[in-house]
């Protein structure tokens, strides 16, 4: 099964949950798909990472074939093409590599050239395979890196996918390849607000999901109340505890350092198996 670890709000604890959950699921593959801010690597001191580039096709216009009809310029909703002094100029930084300009050009004047937008590193940590996606800073979208990451998962029993925050295209790309979504919620009003955006996306995509309440202080938080009111399964609660935060901030795995959390994550694994099996 592929489990996506999501959150609406950034800083809710996606990486915290994903790396620790990976450690309690034997042979689980860890995928860092939060390509804009990849920090999963800090928790797995894996050496000898294999790296490969992720490239996208950006347009190159042949000025001899271009008749200046501007169909490509009008088509591009990202405004990555403009028409200046009788010629098409491209802005690869704005390009989302959809390939639409090549399709609409009646002269076949547009071809693609490969441009690197990110890289994927692969490694191992004990019995876990690791895949880390990284977007080159300044690039428009992490979706091509995420799609290639997910393609690299291959046949595995369990994959834990550490997703980007929010509810936009990168999250949608991640969620499509998963069987179940674990949404980490910071139980504040802010956290609930952003959770609802992600929840709407998951409902639209028809994906089953459950909640982890992170930095949980008591049952009477806005997040806890939201889960009760909407009958959402709360698979785990992680207490608001400086000791846990301190272990995590040093790049250590809390399941290895804190016995109570070790049990908490094993319980999470058990509950997750029941939820996914339903």
């Amino acid at each position: 099964m592929n489990i996506a670890v999501l959150s609406g709000k950034g800083g809710a604890g996606k990486t915290f949950v994903a790396v620790n959950l990976t450690m309690v699921v034997p042979h689980a593959l860890y995928v860092d798909a939060d390509v804009e801010e990849p920090d999963g690597r800090f928790f797995f001191p894996a050496d000898n990472l294999e790296a490969k580039d992720v490239t996208v096709g950006v347009p190159v216009v042949d000025p001899h074939l271009c008749t200046g009809c501007r169909k490509c310029v009008d088509f591009c909703r990202f405004h990555a093409l403009s028409f200046i002094n009788g010629a098409v100029r491209t802005f690869p930084k704005l390009c989302h590599a959809c390939g639409g300009c090549m399709l609409v050009c009646p002269e076949g004047a547009i071809t693609e050239c490969r441009k690197p937008v990110g890289r994927i590193r692969a490694g191992r940590y004990f019995d876990h395979r690791l895949l880390f996606g990284e977007l080159i800073p300044g690039e428009q979208t992490g979706v091509p890196v995420i799609e290639e990451l997910l393609a690299d998962i291959g046949e595995v029993e369990h994959a834990i996918i550490d997703c980007p925050p929010g509810a936009g295209c990168p999250v949608t790309a991640c969620v499509q390849a998963t069987d179940y979504c674990l949404v980490v919620m910071e139980p504040t009003r802010f956290g609930v607000h952003d959770f609802i955006a992600t929840e709407r996306l998951l409902k639209t995509l028809g994906k089953p999901y459950g909640v982890i309440l992170n930095k949980s202080t008591s049952a009477s938080t806005p997040g806890g109340q939201y889960c009760i009111d909407n009958a959402l399964p709360v698979l785990a609660r992680i207490p608001y505890d400086p000791a846990i935060a301190s272990i995590h901030s040093e790049g250590k795995l809390v399941v290895e350092e804190n016995e109570a959390q070790g049990h908490n994550f094993i319980d999470l694994r058990e509950r997750l198996q029941k939820e996914v099996g339903r």
Partner: peptide, 14 residues
């Protein structure tokens, strides 16, 4: 527009 407003706006002026 969500992205590339400068490109589009400059195109209008040109």
């Amino acid at each position: 527009t969500t992205s590339g407003a400068g490109v589009k706006a400059a195109q209008i002026i040109i």
